[in-house]
């Protein structure tokens, strides 16, 4: 009486194990594929751009002559826009998060606002550009100035900041605020002196990450009609400006006319990525250094 064929069983088992091994390798390759493209992209940008990256390029004015062109104007423009985005998003974003987490009662209204925020996060950035064009540039008649660009980008990244600030506030353990209430503190005193300080590192991390999203964003700026012409450096909120991503955009487009423009675009990309890398490092540093575990 033979119950099973041992060699047949072994063969089947072997092929199943082999399949597992082959697919494990394929899964690994897929994961590495994205990283491979990332490496190619970085190397490509470095090869194209590093030769053009020097002090004159960083501090120079815009020029049609590739040898003399610089990105000081775009750098200043990006900094000015950041100076609008940081306070606007922090005040509105953290205020909204505090309201939702600590004041709003659970119910229809709160879930309406939260649904609305998550829908806003999914709206394509170019639609925000049209909002900015219609409301800030035309209706309020700012023109395509720093203030209009900054406000548009602020609205764009606000949903991201609100969600991360909400998470930060939620992570503050309840016993801290209970102790504060127990000492007779009022609600606002508790929020200002206990909850906000405890949540501050996470809030800062989230706000830096959303800021870095705003810096790299191009589509809304193209819609606002941000130029890349030989305009004077921006000196205030109501000056016209250009920004790093816009500079990359125009140089890339025109690289079919003047080949060196591709190099200038690559050099600008290096500057932009370096800036983003710096911001992210600061965010990670803050998170590791100041975040307390309860």
């Amino acid at each position: 009486m033979k119950q099973f064929d041992e060699t047949q069983l072994k063969n089947r088992m072997n092929s199943r194990v082999r399949n597992n091994r082959i697919w494990k390798f394929i899964f690994l390759l897929s994961t590495l594929f994205g990283l491979f493209v990332l490496a190619v992209l970085m190397i490509r940008v470095a090869i194209d751009g590093l030769g053009f990256l020097n002090m004159d390029f960083l501090t120079g004015r815009l020029s049609t002559n590739p040898d003399r062109a610089g990105i000081m104007g775009a750098l200043l423009g990006t900094v000015w826009v950041m100076l609008v985005v940081i306070p606007v998003t922090l005040i509105i974003g953290v205020g909204t998060a505090i309201y939702l987490e600590l004041y709003a009662k659970n119910g229809k209204f709160k879930s309406f606002i939260e649904t609305n925020i998550s829908n806003l996060a999914g709206v394509p950035s170019i639609v925000y550009g049209l909002l900015g064009l219609t409301v800030f540039v035309r209706l309020m008649d700012f023109g395509n100035v720093v203030l209009a660009g900054g406000l548009t980008l602020s609205l764009l990244v606000l949903p991201i900041l609100i969600v991360s600030a909400q998470e930060a506030l939620r992570a503050v353990p309840g016993h801290l605020s209970e102790a504060s209430y127990g000492m007779g503190a009022t609600k606002w005193q508790t929020i200002r002196r206990v909850i906000l300080p405890a949540a501050l590192p996470s809030i800062l991390t989230g706000s830096i990450l959303s800021l870095s999203r705003a810096i790299g964003e191009t589509a809304p700026l193209t819609v606002l009609g941000i130029p890349a012409l030989l305009i004077p450096f921006p000196e205030g909120l109501l000056d016209t400006f250009t920004a790093l991503p816009m500079q990359i955009y125009y140089w890339t487009l025109d690289s079919s006319l003047v080949a060196e423009y591709a190099n200038l675009a690559a050099a600008t990309i290096i500057v932009l990525l370096a800036l983003l890398f710096l911001l992210n490092s600061v965010a990670i540093f803050i998170r590791n250094k100041f975040q307390q575990r309860y």
């Binding site: 994205g34 990283l35 992209l41 790299g216 990359i248 955009y249 890339t252 675009a265 983003l276």
Partner: peptide, 24 residues
């Protein structure tokens, strides 16, 4: 190691991808 590296890929501005598509 792998997850943060993939997150870098997600953090690169789309204009950089545009440059990469067009010139490479």
């Amino acid at each position: 190691v792998l997850k943060p590296l993939l997150e870098i890929l997600a953090g690169i501005p789309t204009i950089v991808y545009g440059f990469f598509a067009f010139t490479f």
